[in-house]
């Protein structure tokens, strides 16, 4: 008698486990796609508007944006960054290009040719992106700094939508001859 009760109890447990796992699998299948993400840190922002599948694999990576003044006698500074990279998962819509804009003006376009990543390295534009240094404290950041520039690095899809973007500002040394 006791063993039959045990058997029934075990069968019931097994049945419950099956029902729970089936429900969980169904819920996962009907799950809505993950929402676009946005993160902020230390005044910088990055967004991931189009997420896997049909999107980028994670945020666009950008490392060490900088602005330098080669010659103190000239009001000419150079903006660049060490590297940046966007990777896609290979599903349509595809990553069409990476573009950089400085103060709202596109300064760089990089297309794709049957590849899943788009990489930029500072040495690809060795002269950098020339901008005006600006006068001391022009950006309100102190006399060491001149102008501050807003930079946007965007990944654009084949349908023209933005798949992700990095937003930051970089301040340049002041021109103080």
């Amino acid at each position: 008698m006791k063993s039959s009760v045990k058997t029934v109890f075990l069968i019931a447990l097994l049945g419950m486990a099956l029902v729970i796992s089936w429900n969980a699998a169904n819920a996962q299948r009907n799950e809505a796609p993950p929402a676009p993400q946005s993160e902020m840190q230390d005044g910088n922002t990055r967004t991931l508007d189009s997420v896997q599948p049909q999107g980028l694999i994670g945020f666009i990576t950008t490392s060490n944006p900088y602005c330098y003044q080669p010659d103190v006698t000239r009001n000419e500074c150079v903006i660049n960054f060490r590297y940046t990279q966007a990777n896609q998962d290979g599903n349509s819509p595809y990553l069409k290009n990476l573009q950089f804009s400085i103060d709202g003006k596109i300064r760089y376009y990089s297309g794709m040719f049957f590849e899943n990543s788009n990489t930029y390295d500072y040495a690809m534009v060795p002269q950098g992106f020339k901008v005006l240094c600006g006068s001391p404290n022009e950006s309100g950041l102190g006399n060491d700094y001149g102008k501050s520039y807003s930079v946007v690095i965007s990944a654009i899809s084949t349908t023209g939508t933005q798949m992700g973007a990095n937003f930051f500002s970089v301040a340049c040394p002041a021109y103080a001859p």
Partner: peptide, 26 residues
């Protein structure tokens, strides 16, 4: 005189290598 300003973007390090500052500071 400040000649270069580099920032971090969601990272914990900063590197200057090779010709990142072009020919250098005049």
């Amino acid at each position: 005189k400040l000649r270069a300003n580099m920032i971090g973007f969601f990272e914990n390090s900063g590197y200057v290598v090779g010709n990142m500052f072009g020919d250098g500071f005049v």
